[in-house]
């Protein structure tokens, strides 16, 4: 194993902001953030639909406000295989709803609550993610 591209400070700073968002949403609105739950409820449920919609719009505004205020360009590198994107997207959408949480809902909100269910979910998706990257790296 080699350690590469390690950026602990920006990761920690970004993480603090994510934690701040989770904390404020709980203290002010009374809900623990889980993005898969917010996005899927926006699609299938009338409860809190406007609130969920505004949160999702906020997510998309985040990068725009960041680039506007810092004049920094945001670069990402993502696969352009349509079949892979569709398969992965469906797996992520279906899987997170079956287990009721994703990286934020289980990984942050659930672990904040010391929920054993969320700790097990987080360990499971991390291990499977690692195995998936290992296998696709060999293929």
């Amino acid at each position: 194993m080699n350690i590469v591209n390690f950026t602990p400070l920006s990761a920690l700073l970004g993480g603090l902001l994510i934690g701040l968002s989770v904390a404020l949403f709980f203290i002010l609105n009374g809900r623990m953030i889980g993005i898969s739950g917010i996005a899927s409820n926006f699609l299938v449920s009338k409860d809190n639909r406007l609130e969920n919609f505004l949160f999702l719009i906020g997510l998309i505004l985040g990068p725009l406000i960041y680039s506007f205020t810092t004049s920094k360009e945001i670069n990402i590198s993502i696969s352009n295989s349509l079949s892979l994107l569709v398969i992965a997207g469906i797996l992520v959408g279906f899987g997170t709803r079956l287990s009721n949480g994703c990286t934020s809902g289980h990984g942050i909100s659930g672990i904040s609550r010391f929920s054993l269910r969320s700790i097990i979910a987080t360990i499971t998706f991390m291990i499977v993610g690692i195995i998936t990257v290992l296998i696709t790296g060999i293929l």
Binding site: S10, A11, L12, L13, G14, G15, L16, L17, I18, L20, S21, V22, L24, F25, N29, I33, I35, E51, N52, L54, F55, L56, I57, G58, L59, I60, L61, G62, P63, I65, Y66, I74
Partner: peptide, 15 residues
Amino acid sequence: SLLCGIVFGIGLVIS
């Protein structure tokens, strides 16, 4: 909701 979304989104960008 909107503000928390924005802060969360900026956190994802910075990290």
